[in-house]
Design a protein around this nucleic acid. Structure first.
Lengths: 125, 125
DNA sequence: TTATATGCAAATTGTTTGCCTAGGC
DNA sequence: GCCTAGGCAAACAATTTGCATATAA
C-alpha cells in the first residue's frame, strides 16, 4: 500500500472532521482539496486506508458505511432526534469495558464487540 | 397496519427461523408458503412489521438488513470464521447490562444501545 | 365501498469493477 | 521500467417507488 499524496490528503482531511462522514459526504469534502478525485478512488481508498489501520470504518446503524479519522478508543451515539453520529466517551464507560473484559474471560471464543448508543445529542437535548 | 394473511404468515415463518435472514433470504423461504409473493412486499412488510413491533430489524455488520422473529432480550455474535449471525446470551451478560443501566443513570440523554459481538461460533471453534 | 395491501416493473441508491492512463519508487 | 494507484464509465446489489389491481374491514 503506497501512501500517495492523495491518500495522505484523505487521511488529513478525515482527521479534521468530527462528523464521521459517509463515502459520498467525504467525497464532497475532499473534492475541495483534490477537485479531480473520482468517487471510485474515494471508495477504494477509504477501504484500503481502513484496512491499513490509518482510519476507522464504522459499523453503524443505517445502511451506509461511515469513516472516522480518530483512532483513539471511543464510542458513538446516534442522536434519536437529528440522526447525527456523535463521539461518546462518558464517565461510566470504563465499567462497561470491564464487563466485556469479564465476558471475554468466560467466553474464550469471544473476540470483540461493537456498540452503538442511541439518545439525544448535546445540541438536541 | 392490517395483519393480512400474508403478513401473519411472514411473522410465523420468521419465528420458525433461527438464522436471522436477510430480506432476499427470507423471500426464498416465504415463497415456499406464498409462491406469488413479490420481493417488494417482502421488503415492505418486513419494514412495517418491525415498526409495529412484531419482528425485529437487526442493525448488523455487513451491508444487508437482517430480521429476527425472536423478540426476547438477547444479543448476537457474528462468527469470524463462517460469518453467520448467532444468538448469544452468555453468562456474564447481566453485568454488562448493569453497566449500561448505570451509564443511563449518569447520562440521562442516553436511551438505548446496540451491541454486536464477534468471535467463533459453536460450530467453528 | 373505501382504505390499505400487493404484484410487477422500473427507478434509485450505495458501492464495486474493468480498463486504460498516470504517478510513485 | 515496473508496479500500484487513479479516473471514468459501466456494472452490480440491495432496496424503494409508481401505478394498477386485489383484498380487508
Amino acid at each position: 500500500m503506497i501512501l500517495t499524496t492523495q491518500r495522505k490528503a484523505m487521511i488529513d482531511e478525515l482527521k479534521k472532521l468530527k462528523t464521521h462522514p459517509t463515502a459520498d459526504e467525504f467525497y464532497e469534502v475532499i473534492r475541495k482539496k483534490i477537485p479531480k478525485i473520482s468517487i471510485a478512488s474515494v471508495y477504494r481508498n477509504l477501504d484500503v486506508l481502513s484496512k491499513a489501520g490509518h482510519i476507522l470504518k464504522i459499523e453503524t446503524s443505517g445502511t451506509q458505511m461511515r469513516f472516522d479519522g480518530d483512532l483513539s478508543r471511543h464510542y458513538h451515539l446516534r442522536c434519536s432526534k437529528c440522526g447525527r453520529l456523535i463521539d461518546f466517551m462518558p464517565k461510566g464507560v470504563d465499567s462497561l469495558e470491564k464487563s466485556v473484559k469479564d465476558l471475554k474471560k468466560r467466553n474464550r471464543n469471544l473476540i470483540d464487540f461493537n456498540i452503538e448508543f442511541s439518545g439525544k445529542c448535546g445540541k438536541c437535548e
